[in-house]
């Protein structure tokens, strides 16, 4: 096979790959306004705290320690 055929084939292949990549990127632009995935359905505490009168509370006092999941 003549050398110029190989060179022509390589040039054609490179051209097709470049054009294909450009087309793919153009048609799959990243949208900055796309929704987050996974979607945030709620944030922050949504529970209800019902304290009996015998338990005092204060939103201002710093706690010494916390009850928490261990």
């Amino acid at each position: 096979m003549p050398g110029w055929v190989l060179k022509l084939a390589a040039c054609l292949l490179t051209g097709v790959a470049t054009a294909g990549s450009a087309g793919y990127v153009t048609s799959h632009l990243k949208s900055p306004s796309a929704p987050l995935n996974p979607r945030v359905v709620a944030s922050g505490p949504v529970g209800r705290l019902t304290l009996t009168p015998s338990i005092r509370s204060s939103a201002d006092q710093q706690p010494l320690t916390f009850t928490s999941v261990s």
């Binding site: 505490p45 529970g47 705290l49 509370s57 204060s58 706690p63």
Partner: peptide, 9 residues
């Protein structure tokens, strides 16, 4: 004072 449910009890 103990941290509990977003407040201190």
């Amino acid at each position: 004072p103990v941290g509990f449910g977003g407040t201190t009890v």
